[in-house]
């Protein structure tokens, strides 16, 4: 049986549109934004991965890719609030930051093992069925590190400045 909706709240969204589906305070939701986010969020993430991968020769790279992915999470935060962000990302943001930094530094150090200068990069050509020749540059790993770092920072900002301030305000009894 569906829950009975009071007549004065008939136009407020009560379906769980976003992934975790838990959004207790219904008056803060907007249907349009949630629907759009649901469609746009995966698209933005794919686009950010595209930017990450093409960064060696074209505009893009780990930094801009990470920023775009971070924006996707900002959109989710605006649409779904802090519960949604907490539900969408299970891993703690500092771990993402640390992982990114570690990968980046290890990539920088790796050429030294082969006797090359630190931070220098190598390129391999890979033959893939259907896709043709693919050029893989070792600096892609550095970009992956930067990508993770930026995403982690964006998530941490949402957690501490976004959700944190929201929580403080709630504790102080303000209506957001």
């Amino acid at each position: 049986m569906t829950e009975r909706i009071p007549w004065e709240r008939w136009d407020e969204p009560h379906e769980p549109w976003l992934l975790p589906g838990r959004c207790p305070d219904r008056s803060e939701r907007t249907l349009l934004l949630e629907m759009t986010t649901r469609v746009v969020f995966p698209t933005i993430l794919v686009f950010s991965l595209y930017l990450l991968l093409v960064g060696h020769y074209s505009p893009g790279g780990g930094f801009s890719g990470g920023l775009v992915a971070g924006l996707a999470f900002v959109l989710r935060y605006i649409a779904g609030g802090r519960q949604d962000i907490g539900g969408a990302v299970r891993i703690r943001p500092p771990v993402v930051i640390g992982l990114g930094l570690t990968i980046a530094v290890l990539t920088a150090l790796a050429p030294a093992l082969a006797g090359n200068a630190v931070l220098s990069s190598a390129m391999w050509e890979v033959e893939l069925p259907l896709l043709g020749t693919l050029e893989v540059v070792s600096s892609l790993l550095l970009d992956v590190g930067v990508y993770l770092l930026i995403v982690g920072v964006a998530l941490d900002l949402l957690r501490s400045l976004g959700a944190g301030i929201e929580q403080d305000a709630r504790a102080a009894g303000e209506r957001m």
Partner: peptide, 11 residues
């Protein structure tokens, strides 16, 4: 710098 990354992970 590597240490900084690792200490964040192992926080």
């Amino acid at each position: 710098m590597l240490g900084a990354g690792l200490t964040v992970i192992t926080s």
